[in-house]
Amino acid sequence: MMRRIRVLVAKPGLDGHDRGAKVVARAYRDAGMEVIYTGLHQTPEQIVQAAMQEDVDIVALSILSGAHNTLVPKVVRMMHEAGLGDVSVLVGGIIPREDAAALKEAGAAAVFGPGSTLESIVAATRGSVKRALA
């Protein structure tokens, strides 16, 4: 049997809407993944520590506040510093098309803008797992 993919779904920053994050979390669960949901207003430090303790394959960030250009590179850098370079960071939310390339440049494995389907999010998440699943 394959081991289960584990995903941390986190909402960094100040915006208070986690509907989208919860919908994605549910889609991950329905795709057979173990989803650790951490709630609102997470600092990068909290996200990295939770990712470490939960030993996840993926950190999925939901950012609606517009602060993605500062938050994402910070989380990616801190993940590496914590020895979690084999954990992929994904970003979803209100991300303008012109920012997506820069976020990938900064180390995000995938960026999901408005209009991304749940199927495409799940498939890209699966594809971003770096450690062996068997």
Binding site: Y28, R29, D30, V35, E45
Partner: peptide, 29 residues
Amino acid sequence: TSPFTGGALLGDRVRMQRWTTDRGVFIRS
């Protein structure tokens, strides 16, 4: 764990977030 998909939604950490960065606490779902 969902008996149908094998997936699971682990949400207990939400209420324990303040301990995430405390080195004297380790939370595992």
